[in-house]
Amino acid sequence: MSFADDVKNEVARKSYSRDCCRLAELASLIKLNGSLKIINRNLALKLKCQNAAVARRIYKLLKDQFNFFTEIVVRKKMYLDKGNYYIIKVPPQKGVKELLLNCGLIYEGYSLNYRVKEEFKKKRCCRKAYLRGLFLGGASVNHPDHSYHFELLVNNYDYAQDLKELFSYFDVDIKYIKKEGGYLLYLKRADDITRVLNIIGAHSSLLKFENTRVYKEVRNRVNRLVNCETANLNKTVTAAQKQLEDIELIDTYKGIEKLAPSLREISILRKENPYASIKELGELLDPPLSKSGVSNRLRRIKKIAKEIRGS
């Protein structure tokens, strides 16, 4: 089961709040997953979803709020994904038109409304409920162990603008791009995603997200430090190898004993400590010498070796 399914299962089991919030949540669920059909001049409603907990929640919202005669049909997917999907059917009956009007999905003349009903934007509780329905109806979120990504696809520009406004009430700056089939709203920042999880009431999933996020960031930081230390070590070993080659060359052609005392001292110390850093070599000298002092002596040795190679 994906992380998105875990979040939906948690949210779908949360208790209902006020009647206005139930209506707001139902409005967003129908907007994303619903389709209308006219049968003998009467409206019928059908919703499809892939999560059993979400299907049960839609069914219960319809029963509790409007006491509709409602049926759920389970179908098996036919392609690569062999799971189930669920169809919630509301046959033509009294109250269907009122439901759609109250949800702001149609106008009185039966034309479709592609905007979010203004009443749902006014109350904070209804804004939360509408976003909760959006997530249950069609949003997805990656597991935090991978990339941070939240997305939702809608098919109307005005609706995408309304949703952007709705998210902005909670200081979430959701982006969108035009895609084939509609407009993709998305979040890439972990802070925004955790804020959305908190808004829709997915508190257990939020804790799991944050725990994984902290572990991931610590792991990445450790990896960066290890990579940095490895790079520095490789650099130190490479430099030391070149210094040893210079010292061996001088010893072969001139003899280390003929070097100035300070250069002879550092040459012997380098041969005895082939993997020591510049700082460590300085600490081994008596008296100790700074890194710049050691580097200066090694540069003088390098210069002598270069003269020998050029002669």
Results as ranks from 00 to 15, higher is better:
11 V>D: 07
11 V>M: 08
11 V>C: 10
14 K>I: 12
14 K>F: 01
18 R>S: 09
21 C>S: 02
23 L>M: 15
24 A>L: 08
27 A>G: 08
31 K>V: 00
36 L>E: 14
36 L>A: 01
37 K>W: 05
37 K>E: 15
37 K>D: 04
39 I>P: 02
40 N>H: 05
41 R>N: 12
42 N>T: 03
42 N>L: 08
56 R>I: 00
57 R>P: 06
58 I>Q: 03
58 I>R: 13
58 I>P: 13
61 L>D: 09
70 T>G: 10
70 T>E: 00
71 E>G: 06
73 V>L: 10
76 K>T: 12
76 K>D: 15
77 K>P: 00
78 M>H: 11
80 L>T: 11
81 D>L: 00
84 N>E: 11
85 Y>N: 07
85 Y>A: 11
85 Y>R: 06
90 V>K: 13
90 V>M: 08
92 P>S: 07
93 Q>P: 06
97 K>V: 06
100 L>P: 07
101 L>R: 11
103 C>R: 07
104 G>K: 12
108 E>R: 11
110 Y>L: 14
110 Y>A: 03
110 Y>R: 07
112 L>Q: 07
117 K>V: 07
121 K>C: 09
124 R>C: 02
125 C>V: 01
127 R>W: 03
137 G>L: 10
138 G>Q: 09
140 S>Q: 03
141 V>H: 10
142 N>C: 13
147 S>K: 13
148 Y>C: 01
150 F>G: 05
151 E>T: 10
152 L>E: 03
153 L>S: 14
162 D>E: 15
163 L>N: 03
164 K>G: 11
170 F>P: 02
170 F>W: 01
174 I>D: 09
184 L>M: 14
187 L>K: 06
187 L>I: 05
190 A>F: 01
190 A>C: 04
190 A>Y: 01
191 D>P: 00
193 I>V: 02
194 T>W: 00
197 L>H: 10
198 N>G: 08
198 N>E: 10
198 N>M: 04
201 G>D: 08
201 G>I: 10
202 A>L: 06
204 S>M: 13
206 L>F: 11
206 L>R: 11
207 L>G: 10
209 F>H: 08
209 F>R: 09
211 N>A: 12
214 V>A: 09
215 Y>C: 00
216 K>M: 04
218 V>N: 11
220 N>T: 02
221 R>P: 01
225 L>K: 13
225 L>P: 00
227 N>Y: 04
229 E>S: 14
230 T>E: 15
230 T>P: 09
231 A>E: 07
234 N>F: 12
241 Q>K: 14
246 D>M: 01
247 I>G: 13
248 E>D: 15
249 L>H: 02
251 D>K: 00
251 D>P: 05
251 D>W: 02
252 T>M: 13
254 K>I: 14
262 S>Y: 02
267 S>A: 12
267 S>V: 02
275 Y>K: 12
281 L>R: 09
281 L>I: 15
290 S>H: 13
290 S>N: 08
290 S>G: 15
292 S>N: 05
297 R>Y: 04
304 I>A: 07
307 E>A: 10
307 E>Q: 15
309 R>T: 12
